[in-house]
């Protein structure tokens, strides 16, 4: 019923544009609350396992590629900053700059995924992937496998979120370039930016939890 209504228009259930915008933003915040609990399970499991096997977590962390993880962190945080500037630009009605910034944000997201893929590839060669190719033996190997289990599930779900974010950012960049958004209407950019901040923040917790255990580096 609403499909043919142009994006900028107010859908029939809302009284006016501010109400529609507030609803969209609140909806995204509520969704972020859900996501926090979703990832929260993994961090809770992390705390339990690390409390039980502190040494295995230090040993596992030492096997991760610290410079690579740090580069990924820098890339992701930069992209988060750019998405915030993109929002500012569209608020100032500078659609072209905003579109370019959104595109660069998406490209940085892709760079993050590529680097992380390279990490996964190296770990596969080293035999550090539980259940698929895990070649560690000897004392502490099982406990370290637990570390890698958590690492893969957490970073795997996080990467999935990055991928979804990249797709959203590319769509937003294209629509902004075509002139769909401007100072008067840019809610989709705002809520995409909110989502992208969630992706950032999950990584801000995951990075130290996995790469910085026991002064690794």
């Amino acid at each position: 019923m609403n499909a043919s209504v142009p994006d900028a228009a107010v859908q029939q259930q809302f009284d006016d544009a501010p109400q529609q915008k507030d609803a969209a933003v609140l909806g995204m915040w509520a969704f972020i609350a859900t996501e926090v609990l979703f990832f929260g399970v993994l961090f809770a499991a992390y705390v339990v396992c690390r409390f039980r096997f502190p040494l295995a977590f230090v040993a596992g962390s030492a096997r991760l590629d610290f410079p690579m993880g740090t580069a990924e962190t820098a890339i992701l945080l930069t992209s988060g900053c750019l998405s915030a500037i993109a929002l500012r630009q569209i608020q100032l009605d500078k659609a072209r700059q905003s579109a370019v910034l959104l595109l660069v944000t998406a490209l940085l997201g892709i760079a993050f995924l590529v680097l992380h893929g390279m990490e996964y590839h190296d770990e596969f060669k080293e035999g550090l992937i539980p259940g698929i190719r895990y070649l560690e033996n000897g004392p502490g190997a099982h406990e370290m496998e637990l570390f890698f289990s958590l690492y893969y599930v957490t970073t795997g779900f996080h990467s999935l979120h990055v991928l979804i974010g990249v797709v959203l950012l590319l769509i937003m960049a294209a629509r902004t370039w075509r002139g769909t958004f401007g100072a008067h209407y840019h809610t989709p950019i705002e809520i995409t930016g909110l989502y992208w901040s969630l992706v950032d923040i999950v990584w801000i917790f995951a990075y130290p939890a996995f790469y910085l255990v026991g002064g690794a580096g």
Partner: peptide, 26 residues
């Protein structure tokens, strides 16, 4: 969401041997 992630971990444990609930791995 807590249920969703917990059930994912069960699926992953069966499919890929992720062992967060597996006593054999600690």
């Amino acid at each position: 969401p807590v249920l969703a992630m917990t059930l994912s971990l069960i699926g992953l444990e069966r499919l890929a041997g992720v062992g967060i609930f597996d006593p054999a791995l600690g």
